Lab assay of single mutants.
Amino acid sequence: ENVVSAPMPGKVLRVLVRVGDRVRVGQGLLVLEAMKMENEIPSPRDGVVKRILVKEGEIVDTGQPKIELG
């Protein structure tokens, strides 16, 4: 899985990584606000952040790609 998608609709509060960052499985990639709760979205695997496809403040839909890992 190279693309991390939104598990639920919500607002991107914070992006916790930058392009080029090495990430580990379970590491937080971003914080999504859904139903007035903050949810940290974890990396599904070890890898390197290739692209960030969302911006802080953006509203995302379920299944929308957010971060691409290499």
Rank of each mutant, 00 (worst) to 15 (best):
E56N: 07
T62I: 13
M37G: 12
V15Q: 01
G20D: 04
V48I: 13
G28F: 10
R18T: 10
I67R: 01
R51L: 09
P9K: 12
L69P: 00
V15L: 13
V15Y: 05
A6I: 09
P44G: 04
V23M: 00
K55P: 01
R24Q: 11
S43Q: 01
G28K: 10
E68P: 03
I67L: 09
E33Q: 11
L29C: 04
D46C: 11
V60Q: 03
I41E: 02
V3P: 06
E58D: 14
M35K: 10
V3F: 15
L13M: 08
G28W: 09
G28L: 14
I52M: 02
V12D: 00
G28D: 03
K36L: 12
S5M: 12
L32A: 00
V17E: 01
E1H: 13
L32V: 10
A34S: 13
V31W: 05
E33Y: 15
R51G: 07
R22Y: 14
P42S: 11
L32K: 00
M35C: 13
L30Y: 08
V49R: 01
K11W: 07
R45K: 11
V54P: 00
A34R: 07
R14M: 07
Q27N: 03
V49F: 00
V15G: 01
V17P: 00
P9R: 14
V4F: 06
G57C: 07
L16T: 04
D21F: 07
E68L: 15
L30D: 00
R22N: 10
L69F: 09
G63C: 09
G63E: 06
E56L: 10
P44I: 05
G28I: 15
V12P: 01
K55W: 09
Q27E: 07
K55D: 07
G10A: 07
V19Q: 08
I41A: 01
P7S: 13
L30K: 00
V4Q: 04
E68H: 11
R51Y: 09
A6G: 06
E56S: 08
P9T: 10
G10R: 03
S5R: 15
V54W: 03
K11G: 01
R18L: 08
R24L: 10
I41W: 05
N2V: 14
V15H: 03
V49Y: 00
L29W: 01
E38G: 05
V31A: 02
E40N: 08
K50H: 10
R18H: 11
G70K: 12
M8E: 05
D61E: 14
G20F: 06
G70Q: 13
E33P: 00
V4A: 05
R18W: 05
D61G: 12
R51T: 10
V25I: 13
V19D: 03
E56R: 08
